[in-house]
Design a binder for these strands. Structure first.
Lengths: 171, 171
DNA sequence: TTAATCGCGGGACATTTGTCCCAATTTACA
DNA sequence: TGTAAATTGGGACAAATGTCCCGCGATTAA
């Protein structure tokens, strides 16, 4: 079915809360999310964590590292139980080179990620959290998952204490 | 030299301070920086500006929009006088599809941009500006350009007033 | 030359956010 | 079931940053 790829695409499962990509390590596989939600997060030297985004079905993990040939820049935790399609890095490159539609998909995915993170970055710097919180709540309400305050604060880049304050004022 | 591309690659020049890509508009060309430095920046509805990064020789502009087929998410200003190679969007796509090396270049460029902006985002949220400023100064000193305090503050996402305070304390 | 603008520096005060606590509740698990 | 751990909520204070304002010198344009 998948010629000359030297390995099948497998499915891997992880429990909620489980970490399956570790910041600073080599990446061996590229994943595509089949079901569930995950959170890529960066841990800084001062021990604080920043959640880059929440990713769901159809999103890709590890492509950036596979393309650049670098170690991972962030860890990834399962927020809900997740099911992932996994392919080896070599296989990923093979697909990139031989399947134009796949190449195009990854290209678009990366471009969209650049656009999204640029906008998120600008907003987070130019508005106060009190202004951003309502919009964020709307976004997260759309997905049906119960995010913890920890996650919400981690995504906003503020402490849980500050988040609590905002939630109180904002009501 | 460039078959079936329906147009040559041209060179365009802009003065320091001149804006040549406007947030919210259609993009007609993809640029590669031949010489000089530019700053992509996002203007929010509250009038504030955030400088995403400083880009120099060999960097690309407009690829994200060309790939996604969307309007621009940010404006781009020349920081120094710049010289740009310009190609039409159609030509850009043609190159992507027909020149594997070009495809690979763009792919790497996007991946690197994702990685860089992720790290920048995390740092900006998890450290105080007083901690970040020294590192930033080192980075900017490496490039020989005289950045204005405005630019520096815009890049850090803080007000000029705050930047002044930091510079004073930090001396 | 004379305004007018722009980059720069900083005082005074308000707001936002962090830090360090402690307590109540819920959740996990042995 | 019972205990430990995690989650949540918040008081009190400190630190970081924004806002508004003024003045100074340099550059620009009429």
């Amino acid at each position: 079915m998948l010629p000359a790829a030297g390995g099948a695409i497998t499915v891997r499962q992880f429990d909620a809360g489980q970490r399956f990509i570790f910041q600073g390590q080599e990446i061996l596989q590229v994943y595509i999310i089949r079901a569930g939600v995950v959170k890529p997060l960066i841990t800084e030297e001062n021990g604080k964590e920043y959640i880059l985004e929440f990713l769901g079905e159809g999103e890709m993990l590890g492509e950036v590292e596979a393309i650049r040939g670098t170690k991972t820049i962030c860890s990834v935790d399962a927020v809900t139980p997740v099911s992932l399609y996994a392919m080896g890095v070599g296989q990923f490159h093979y697909f990139l080179q031989t399947i134009p539609a796949f190449n195009n998909l990854v290209m678009r995915l990366l471009a969209t990620r650049v656009a999204n993170s640029s906008v998120k970055m600008a907003r987070q710097q130019l508005y106060t959290m009190a202004e951003l919180l309502p919009q964020l709540q709307k976004m997260l309400a759309a997905q049906q998952i119960g995010f913890t305050k920890q996650d919400l604060a981690g995504y906003m880049g503020i402490s849980v204490r500050s988040l609590n304050r905002l939630l109180k004022e904002n009501s």
